[in-house]
Structure formats: C-alpha cells, structure tokens
C-alpha cells in the first residue's frame, strides 16, 4: 500500500539533549540553518508582496485591471493567472533547490547523530 520507504523514521533514535545542543552550536548546522533561512525567508516575503500587490490592485486600480489586452482578456485576469504561474514555479523551484542544497546537509548531520553511517562531510 505504501510506496515510499521510510527515510527518516527508522524508529525513534535516542539522542541526548546534550548532543542536540552541541549540534545546534556546530558550524555544520549553522550552515544548514543559514542555507534554509536564506532561501525561505526572502522567497516568502517576495511571494507575499507579489500577492499583496495583486490584492491592492484589485481594490484600488480597477480601471487598470479592467484594461483589455486581447479580446475580452484583461489585465486583471492575466495578473490573476500569473499568481498561479508564480505559485507553481516557486513550489517547483523550492523542491529542486532543497533536493540539491538542503537535503545533503541535513542528511549528513542526521546520519552523524543517529550514528548509523560513515558519511563524511
């Protein structure tokens, strides 16, 4: 029934609080945190502003939104469709980026902590 094999849930590994604290201070984890936040925070702000612009224009720039581009297709419709496009693109971009940049860093740290591999960093 299930297709994915468990990747991280191989039973609860017992990891002490002290080793979490140590990892949290490590340079390696610092890099993971910085990489993660360096992507998701700016992108979140960007798509939020882009969406807010759309809502503002819907409220305060009606004539602009109603400007026809081709036939009965106006700026408002295209702007709305672009919100769909940007959502799809950001989702794809994040997944692609995370697979390349984030997952290897996270895997390294996890394997070391769970002590079940000889992964070298």
């Amino acid at each position: 029934m299930s297709i994915d094999t468990p990747e991280t849930s191989g039973g609860p590994h017992v990891i002490s609080e002290a080793s979490y604290a140590e990892v949290a201070r490590s340079e390696e984890f610092g890099r993971l945190r910085k990489t993660f936040r360096g992507f998701v925070f700016p992108v979140t702000i960007a798509f939020f502003l882009w969406y807010a612009l759309y809502v503002f224009l819907s409220a305060y720039a009606r004539d602009f939104m109603g400007t026809k581009i081709v036939g009965n297709i106006n700026v408002g419709l295209v702007f709305g469709l672009l919100q769909f496009v940007s959502t799809f693109v950001i989702a794809w971009w994040y997944a692609h980026w995370a697979g390349r940049k984030l997952d290897p860093l996270a895997d390294d740290i996890r394997h070391k902590m769970e002590g079940d591999s000889e992964v070298t960093s």
Binding site: E7, T8, S9, P12, H13, V14, I15, E17, Y20, A21, V23, A24, R25, F29, L32, R33, F36, A106, D107, I109, R110, M113, E114
Partner: peptide, 18 residues
C-alpha cells in the same frame, strides 16, 4: 529557550523524528 536546540535540529534534519 534551552530546548529550542533540540526542536531546531530535529525540525531541520529529522534526527530523532517520530
């Protein structure tokens, strides 16, 4: 505040996750 280390490491790496 002290336990944030565990939450942060676990949430970002999955180490010790259920």
């Amino acid at each position: 505040e002290e336990k944030y280390a565990e939450l942060e490491v676990r949430s970002l790496t999955g180490a010790g996750a259920q």
